[in-house]
């Protein structure tokens, strides 16, 4: 763990502590949902990080296709894996909110469905990576899949306008009635900051690991060549 990572990790942890203070001790109760609404401040940052992570995967995939730098592929793969972790957390925290509020764990609402679809797309991306043995080929196929998969996201969200949604409307930039009181918005942003910084720490760690594993693979191939 390098010093940059230590600083980032400290920042993230400090923001997480601040978030907990704000959520559990400071901010007033939301009127309609009461205490349960506090889940929002961790659920939304997880969704945000998931979306950012998959976007990074698509961008790094594009850069890989342009440059053929294996490092770009490592960033793409690492980001997809972390995106899956955070999207899984969205799919866990969401139902934990829905159960007390809606009385059900899950509903086939468009926003829930689209998050699930996004999760499945990048799960397929990771499975594809596991099942293509040759490295250059794997990188190219993964890059194409990462880009095409990402294109599906806005289209899924367009379905939102057609089908009615039970999911609470986006509170930031979601239309006429949206908008949060400043203190709620500030709390949300603290959560987003904490998890985004944590995402960067995870990303850097995952890429370092991938570089080492690739170096080992290269050495083993060289070894095999020497013995042959």
């Amino acid at each position: 763990m390098r010093s940059t990572d230590r600083i980032l990790l400290t920042l993230s942890a400090a923001a997480m502590l601040a978030l907990c203070y704000l959520v559990f001790l400071y901010i007033p109760l939301e009127k309609t949902q009461g205490y349960i609404q506090k889940i929002f401040y961790i659920h939304v940052p997880c969704a945000w990080v998931g979306f950012v992570a998959f976007t990074v995967t698509a961008i790094m995939g594009g850069r890989y296709l342009a440059t053929r730098d294996p490092d770009h592929d490592r960033w793409a793969a690492a980001s997809a894996e972390i995106g899956i972790v955070f999207t899984t957390l969205v799919l866990i925290t969401g139902p934990m909110w829905a159960r007390p509020v809606w009385g059900i764990w899950w509903t086939w609402d468009i926003r829930l469905t689209s998050t699930l679809v996004l999760w499945l797309i990048y799960l397929a991306y990771l499975i594809l990576r596991q099942t293509v043995a040759e490295r250059d080929r794997r990188s190219v196929l993964a890059a194409v899949t990462g880009i095409i998969g990402w294109l599906g996201v806005p289209i899924v969200y367009l379905g939102n306008r057609v089908r009615a949604s039970q999911h609470p409307a986006p509170v930031v930039g979601g239309g006429e009635d949206s908008g949060l009181a400043p203190i709620f918005l500030a709390t949300l942003l603290v959560g987003v900051f904490s998890l985004t910084v944590f995402y960067i720490v995870l990303l850097r760690a995952r890429v370092r690991g991938a570089r080492l594993e690739d170096a080992i693979e290269e050495l083993q191939i060289a070894e095999g060549r020497d013995h042959a």
């Binding site: 907990c20 559990f24 205490y35 349960i36 889940i39 961790i42 659920h43 957390l89 934990m96 007390p100």
Partner: peptide, 11 residues
């Protein structure tokens, strides 16, 4: 619901 919300953060 304190423990429920706390559990969500804990997860």
């Amino acid at each position: 619901h304190f423990w429920w919300v706390f559990a969500v953060y804990g997860v």
